Simulated assay, not measured.
Amino acid sequence: MRQLVLNSYWVKTQYSRPDAQTGVNVTTLYDEIGYPLTVQNVTTKPGLLSPIHNHGTWGVIFQIRGEERHTFWRRVNPAEKPLQIEPVGEHLLGPGEILSLHPDAIHQVETVGQKISLTFQFYGDTQPKSRFQFEPETQTARRF
């Protein structure tokens, strides 16, 4: 992953500025129907805080520019209360760093600092039926 991003002019230049209203822009670089692989560059504006969510698949994130704080959550009692979650830690991802996510990972992302964040993201099978946005206060989740 590091070798690909650092040595690829194309990967580092295929993006758009974050949308003025949402603060995010996703540039899909590869997404083939029926093939479990999605490759994208994502830009986010400074101060943006994502909802708490999962991806429902494995993922690898390479921070090209800017910084992101990833706060990780876990299910408190998956068998009895699968939607009850609690924070378990965080990681500040800086330029040149890589973060990998397992299929059960739940996280929230905040763009920190004054720079736009640009990440190269590589995911397995991204099915909407397995992606959720979590609300810890109400112990609910909805499709994301």
Score class of each variant (00 low, 15 high):
residue 113 G to E: 05
residue 92 L to H: 08
residue 99 L to W: 04
residue 58 W to R: 13
residue 142 R to P: 01
residue 103 P to D: 13
residue 86 E to M: 14
residue 121 Q to W: 00
residue 127 Q to I: 08
residue 120 F to H: 14
residue 120 F to A: 10
residue 82 P to V: 10
residue 127 Q to W: 00
residue 139 Q to S: 11
residue 82 P to H: 12
residue 12 K to S: 04
residue 66 G to H: 08
residue 25 N to E: 12
residue 29 L to I: 06
residue 89 G to K: 05
residue 123 Y to K: 03
residue 47 G to P: 03
residue 56 G to W: 08
residue 38 T to V: 14
residue 79 A to P: 01
residue 58 W to L: 09
residue 70 H to T: 09
residue 3 Q to T: 07
residue 21 Q to F: 10
residue 118 L to N: 01
residue 113 G to F: 06
residue 21 Q to A: 12
residue 52 I to M: 05
residue 60 V to N: 09
residue 126 T to A: 08
residue 105 A to D: 15
residue 15 Y to C: 01
residue 72 F to Q: 12
residue 124 G to V: 08
residue 70 H to F: 15
residue 126 T to Q: 13
residue 8 S to T: 03
residue 44 T to C: 07
residue 95 P to N: 07
residue 40 Q to S: 13
residue 3 Q to K: 10
residue 41 N to R: 04
residue 5 V to Y: 02
residue 39 V to C: 02
residue 97 E to H: 10
residue 23 G to L: 04
residue 52 I to G: 02
residue 47 G to R: 03
residue 40 Q to W: 01
residue 77 N to W: 12
residue 93 L to T: 07
residue 13 T to S: 14
residue 19 D to I: 03
residue 69 R to Q: 14
residue 62 F to W: 11
residue 119 T to Y: 02
residue 33 I to Q: 12
residue 3 Q to N: 04
residue 124 G to M: 04
residue 104 D to V: 10
residue 17 R to E: 14
residue 7 N to Q: 13
residue 71 T to I: 14
residue 54 N to I: 04
residue 37 L to R: 09
residue 100 S to H: 12
residue 126 T to S: 09
residue 52 I to C: 05
residue 101 L to W: 10
residue 53 H to W: 06
residue 103 P to C: 09
residue 7 N to I: 00
residue 87 P to A: 11
residue 27 T to V: 03
residue 47 G to Q: 02
residue 52 I to L: 03
residue 25 N to K: 13
residue 10 W to I: 11
residue 30 Y to S: 11
residue 54 N to W: 04
residue 121 Q to Y: 01
residue 45 K to A: 14
residue 8 S to C: 02
residue 11 V to I: 15
residue 22 T to F: 05
residue 25 N to Q: 14
residue 10 W to G: 00
residue 105 A to W: 02
residue 8 S to F: 01
residue 82 P to A: 13
residue 98 I to N: 01
residue 78 P to F: 09
residue 21 Q to T: 13
residue 96 G to F: 10
residue 51 P to L: 07
residue 58 W to F: 13
residue 125 D to A: 09
residue 88 V to P: 06
residue 71 T to E: 15
residue 13 T to N: 14
residue 39 V to L: 09
residue 132 F to M: 10
residue 15 Y to I: 00
residue 52 I to W: 05
residue 75 R to S: 08
residue 77 N to V: 12
residue 49 L to C: 06
residue 74 R to K: 15
residue 18 P to Q: 03
residue 72 F to Y: 15
residue 66 G to D: 07
residue 26 V to R: 08
residue 4 L to T: 03
residue 67 E to T: 14
residue 107 H to D: 06
residue 127 Q to A: 11
residue 28 T to V: 15
residue 121 Q to S: 13
residue 76 V to H: 02
residue 141 A to T: 06
residue 31 D to I: 00
residue 85 I to L: 08
residue 72 F to P: 10
residue 27 T to E: 02
residue 112 V to H: 06
residue 28 T to Q: 07
residue 67 E to S: 15
residue 89 G to H: 06
residue 64 I to C: 11
